[in-house]
Each structure stands twice: as structure tokens, then as C-alpha cells.
Design a protein around this nucleic acid. Structure first.
Lengths: 399, 399
DNA sequence: CCTATTAATTCAACTAACTTGAATATTCAA
DNA sequence: TTGAATATTCAAGTTAGTTGAATTAATAGG
């Protein structure tokens, strides 16, 4: 499966300038709302007149709404604006080997609709058909009258392409070969599509509506089928050269340690992941049937689960230290398909290294936080990617 | 010491559009040169007319030079353009606790002048004075008649600020407290200044004139005082939230392993770095006096050095696997203050993990390469940062 | 309570930079 | 030799941003 499209550095003209400036204004509104024209002009470096024109256009298009007047001190009270949730929405779709999840999310990050469709097989055609079904369902549930469908974010398990760790997890989709996933979904969904891995989507979801709101540089450790890392640096999502950045599950934390399906020994995934939990529980004769099993076992204080949690703490702490020293993020977020109680326990059990650039006076955020978006993170994240793209200015265009 | 200045998302106008487009054109010329106006219009997405105007301006300003006509098939042969090395230059300055290095590099990456100034102390005032001296020396050696000094890149040993690994290496500068390094150097050098760590500078140096030319996403493992990682993602330098990204030396590769000065156990730096080599050699009663000592010992097949090289191979391989899985770069480059022969030996001795997203069919670049810029990398890198900035378009402006 | 001051917003004229379409120049192919 | 192909330039037109003056609405101070 292919997903990356190299960026082309393109020039700008009046039209693209306006597009950029619209995004700039939207971005600042989403961060500062409610906010007035003059204030926006100051932070964006544009003239008041330009901001005024752009805001008029955005209100006209339904992206912004008036939000009263701010009476503060002398002078004409500023007319405030905020994002208009009803103005636009994005579709998020998570693809797993056995099922697909859909979510419709509005501009403000509000979830309007969610759905789940079981898959009998994960061949491209079946997935595309299910995607169409999700789209139709969403549009029936929330008929987009004046609303606009900004696009769709499709979340698929990485890694993409035939690389050294493909097939290591149970997550890989069969029969995708060299399929161009983006093109496939764009055709099926009749809208612009961004394809991403689950960890990245989750990271962005936290930014649009979660604990990362306001952060510009952070990482998200995602418990999915395996273990993934979503990275946002200076507001920009990091994908790597081939769309496979963030494969933290197969980073070796204990040389010569546990054998991993990828061939390496001592991969983080063999300690801190659902796979590891499942293995530990299976050894104790416990089969995990549904996702809620882990939560139940945790509340029962199940010894096998506790043993897994204990064993996961050190490798996970080590990995977090590594992330901190490599990325120097504002914070590291833990989340994904794992009960909050378990995530909290994991975070509580960490022993983070002192030798880290994250150890500094005057930290504002904790070194590690739990994600706020919960289980649906990935599908929501897909939508969040689209919203993020609408709101984050960028000049380099895709091919 | 402070160095980071948060980016502000600013709007664009006609003037900023032109600036952006100039950079776009310069960037494409530097990649494709020699190249004609029409071709540039196609790749930049601008009209021929716009490109034509911009090129006229760039020629006028001395950044571009005509390079004959391309006779290829029918039609009017395209007038070709290339970067004009003589048109502009950038100053690169590396600050070490005991000495400073300066380099003047032209637009094409050609080194015009280098110098070294010994430091008696590394207090801000002394460093600033030496910087002034370097600037003066460069301008005397290469009087910039029509040339323009684009700016200066100052390379300092990280980490920046008072963080968990400060003082672990012997590299830290004393007496800088909360000094704003950028402001200090801008005042001393009377030009725009970029402050970066050595690894990042080295990475960019390889892109401007080295093995990374043409790459957009890669990493550079830098042997300096400690060990650093420079990262370029989609052409963008990665600094992290506080300018300390890439502190790979203090990533734990062997839990419970060798004690590191930072407090951690098993840091990569205790195996693969000059510090590690020095320790290993000291244990064998050998003191390293100058940089060339390592080279001599290597050619003498010194057993202590060889033992160090052997011990470094596994941790380094593990770290490279980690980098690959986290960043998914096109390649990983090894370089810095280490003789080429030793770097080559290290690369030859690597046993890279099979479980890596870097293992893929149709790789064009090797997984690991040796840097081409040699010992002066850091100072050259400083200048390269400035040149890179001149040539790489970017809309988000600094505060 | 009135008036000067302050601040946001709008109006109207102006400008920079890009686009478009026609004209011109130069080469190759038939 | 002529026509097609391609690059470049010319000239007019368009978009979107800027500037400075006018308008509106609030507060502070006498």
C-alpha cells in the first residue's frame, strides 16, 4: 500500500495568498476564540482591512460566527468571532482488519455521528464499499445542508509498504499490494482524503480537542494493535520519508531481550503493548475476547495483568526518555485502545530518567499525560487531521 | 543560554509573496541547476512571466547567473540559470569551550575562508569578541564588494538551557546563564544570526554540499564532544520545543549498562562517542592529546581503540535502528569530529536490525552513509544553515 | 453631564505582484 | 523553405493587500 505523496515546493500568488491567510485567520481564531478583527490583525501581521475582508468571507462561508461584543476599556467594543461548528465537518474513518469505524466531526471538534461496520475481509474493494457506506450513513444522520464536508481522514494500521516489520503485527491488511490508498478512498468518498496511521491521527485528535490543545510540539504513544508514536513538531505532523515514522513498537529497548515477531529481540512492543498483555495473559490461561476484558481484569486486580503492567513500566520509561531526548517535546501523551485506568496505572508506574532534556526548571506541562480522546481516538483523529489541515496554514502543496 | 524563538503564524501579502517566490525559485535552481525559466515555471506552479520577473531580480541582485542556452529539441533554446556563488556568502562560527572556528561559505557551498581563534575563557563577552574578530577576518580575506553577507550561523554545543543532561559532557559553556545567544551574536556580528547545535548544523552542511544533497528527510549522527543527532524532515530542520531535539547521546540503549555522567545508566554516549573512546584508551594508559591521535592509533591498529570500536558497534546499530523506526529517514549519515577511517570502520562493523521500516525493496540510498564534510563540518554547517534558510521557502515567521 | 480620548471598524484610493493572451524569437522536422 | 514547437517578452487585466481618512462607540476626566 502506498500513501505518501512528495511535497512540491510551489510559488504563491494572490489566490494562494488568500487561501493561506484564511487558514491563518482560522488558526488564530481557533486558538484565541472569541477574538475580534483588530486583535487578529495584530497577531497575524495583516492589516485590519485585510482581516476584515477575510472574516467577512469566512462568515459568509459559514466557518466563523459572530460572538457578541467585547466591552473592555475605551473605544468601540470589538465584535468577537468564533469557529462555527455547524459550518463544516470532516469525516474520519478507521480501518482495522475486522471492522471499520466512522466518525463525523465538526469544525469545533464536536463529534456529530459515529458508526461501526464489520468487515468480512479487508481487501481494497470491501474496504472501499464500507467507506462509502460510512459516508452515506454520516450524511443521512447529519444532512449537510449549508455545511461543507471538508474531507475525510482515513486511519490505517502502519507500516505502509513492504518494509522490514510488515506482517509482524496482526494488524496488516491483506491484499493491498501496491494499491494507492489515497486515490482509492478519494474515489470512494468523493472528497479529499488524507491517509495516516493510527498514532499520528490520535496525536492530532488530542490537539483539535484534547490534552494537546495549545501545544505545538508533542508526541503521542498509541496503544493500537502494536505500539505507535505520533509526532507533531511545531504544529507539523511528522510522517517520515515514506510515511512510516513513529514505529516505536519495534525500537529495541532491551538488546537480546524478548523475541519479537519482526525478527528483532527486545522490541518495546514485546513489553508495552496489547500484544504483550495478551501474551502474558495467555500464559496464565486467560484469553482476551473483547476490549473491555482488560478493564475488567484490571479492576479485578488480576495477577497476570498486574505482572504485565509491572514488566512494561521500565521499557516504557526508557522509551519515553528516548523520545524526550530525541524530540524535545513539550509533553508525551499516552493513549489509544487501552482503558483509562490501565493508562493511568502505567503512567503512575513510570520511573522517568533524570538524564533527559525534559528535566528543566519551570516546566508547565507534566512529562507524561494521558490522552483525553478515549477509544474512538483513531477515527476521531482521522477527522481531526482534516480539520487540522483546514486550520493550519501551509504553503508547500502536495503533488 | 536561550536560543529558541517561537514561530508565529503570520499572514502573507504581496511583498511576502514575492519573498517566498524568490526562495522557491532559488530552491529549485539549486536543486536542478542549470535550469531555464519555463522549466522553473512548470515546477514552481508560477506563470512564466512571474518566474521571468523574479529571475531578472535575482540576477540583478547577484544571486543567479546565466549559464548558456540549452539546445534540446525544437523551439527556442532555453536560457539556463545557476546559483551565482560570488553573489552572496554566509558566515559560519563554531563555538567550543577552548576555541572558535570560522568559515565563510558562498551560495554554492564553496568555502571561501576558514580560521581558528583560541579562547582563554568561554564567557559571553569573550566569545562575542572572538566572533567579531572572525567576522572581520573573513571580510578582510574576502572583501564583499557586490557580495552580500546573508547572515551568520553560530554553532554551539547543546543542550540549551538548564536541563537534565546539562553538564554531563565537557562541552558546556560556562557563565552563559540566561544569556540570549542569538541577540548577543546579532549585536556582535551585525547581521542576522541562527544559533544551532553542532549535529543539526552538520546535517544541514551535508545537504548544502555533501552526501545529503537532494535528500529531504534524513538524520545525521554527529560525533562531537558527546553524540548528537541532526534531523531534517521534509527539508525542515527539527529543533524540538526548546531547541534540544537530537540529544541521542543520552538515550539509553542498554538498561543498567555503563554509568553516564548524566545520571542514567546505559546511555549511547558511554559506548559510541569520543568520550567513550577516551575512557577506553585512558584505561589502557593512553591519553588523547589531539584529534589526530585517534587516526594514528587507528592506523596502528591499537588494541584499546579496536576494543572500543568493537564495543561501540552493537549500541550504535541499535540506535540507528531506533532512528529508522522513529523517523523513517531516507538515510542515516555518520560524521563529525572523528577520522573518516574510523567512521568507515564503524559503519562497516554495524549489524543493522532486520526489523526496521528502513528495510524495503528498491532502496536507493544505503541505510547508513559517511558524511562528506569532514572535521570542519560544524562551522561549515553554521554557514550552511544560513544558505539553507535563504533557499528554503517558509511562510511561518519568527517572532 | 459633557467632551476629549481611545479603539475598532469601514470606506475609498492606491499598489504590488501575479495571470493571461498576444507577439516575437529561435530551433527542428518535413 | 515552411510550419510546428518551445521559450521569452510585452501589455493589459485581476486579485488581494495596504494606507489614510472617516465613522462609530465606548471610557475618563473635568
Amino acid at each position: 500500500m502506498k500513501i505518501t505523496s512528495p511535497r512540491r515546493i510551489v510559488g504563491s500568488n494572490a489566490e494562494r495568498t488568500r487561501l493561506h491567510n484564511r487558514q491563518v485567520v482560522l488558526g488564530h481564531v481557533s486558538e484565541q476564540q472569541p477574538v475580534g478583527r483588530a486583535e487578529l490583525a495584530r497577531i497575524s501581521g495583516l492589516s485590519t482591512q485585510a482581516v476584515s475582508n477575510i472574516i467577512a468571507e469566512l462568515v459568509e462561508d459559514g466557518f466563523l460566527a459572530e460572538a457578541g461584543r467585547q466591552v473592555a476599556g475605551r473605544g468601540l467594543p470589538a465584535l468577537q468571532y468564533r469557529l462555527n461548528g455547524h459550518g463544516a465537518a470532516a469525516l474520519g474513518i478507521e480501518v482495522r482488519p475486522d471492522a471499520m469505524f466512522g466518525a463525523l466531526v465538526d469544525l469545533e471538534g464536536e463529534t456529530l455521528f459515529t458508526t461501526r461496520i464489520a468487515l468480512t475481509d479487508s481487501a481494497p474493494a470491501s474496504v472501499a464499499a464500507a467507506a462509502r457506506e460510512i459516508r452515506a450513513g454520516a450524511l443521512v444522520a447529519r444532512p449537510m445542508k449549508n455545511q461543507r464536508l471538508l474531507g475525510a481522514g482515513v486511519v490505517m494500521p502502519g507500516p505502509f509498504g513492504n518494509v522490514g516489520i510488515s506482517g509482524a503485527g496482526q494488524s496488516a491488511l491483506q491484499g493491498w499490494g501496491e494499491t494507492d490508498a489515497t486515490a482509492l478512498f478519494e474515489e470512494a468518498l468523493e472528497t479529499a482524503v488524507i491517509v495516516e496511521n493510527d498514532a499520528t491521527a490520535a496525536a492530532v485528535a488530542e490537539r483539535v480537542r484534547g490534552v494537546a490543545s495549545g501545544l505545538r510540539t508533542y508526541c503521542f504513544i498509541y496503544f493500537g494493535a502494536g505500539l505507535g508514536l505520533g509526532m507533531v513538531a511545531d504544529g507539523e505532523v511528522q510522517r517520515g520519508a515514506f510515511g512510516n515514522a513513529g514505529e516505536i513498537g519495534h525500537v529495541v529497548v532491551t538488546p537480546g531481550g524478548r523475541q519479537c515477531a519482526c525478527g528483532n529481540r527486545g522490541c518495546l512492543e514485546t513489553y508495552a503493548s496489547r500484544i504483550a498483555a495478551r501474551t502474558e495473559l495467555a500464559a496464565a490461561g486467560i484469553e482476551l475476547a473483547s476490549a473491555s476484558d482488560i478493564e475488567r481484569l484490571y479492576h479485578e486486580n488480576n495477577p497476570a495483568l498486574m505482572a504485565w503492567l509491572d514488566a512494561a513500566a521500565a521499557p516504557l520509561s526508557q522509551a519515553i526518555g528516548m523520545i524526550e531526548n530525541l524530540f524535545d517535546p513539550e509533553t508525551v501523551i499516552l493513549g489509544g485502545a487501552m482503558p483509562n485506568a490501565v493508562l493511568d496505572h502505567l503512567i503512575g508506574g513510570l520511573s522517568l530518567a533524570g538524564g533527559s532534556v525534559a528535566v528543566r526548571p519551570g516546566r508547565k506541562t507534566p512529562r507524561v499525560m494521558r490522552g483525553a480522546c478515549g477509544r474512538l481516538t483513531a477515527a476521531l483523529g482521522g477527522a481531526a487531521l482534516v480539520i487540522h489541515d483546514t486550520i493550519t496554514p501551509r504553503i508547500a502543496a502536495k503533488t
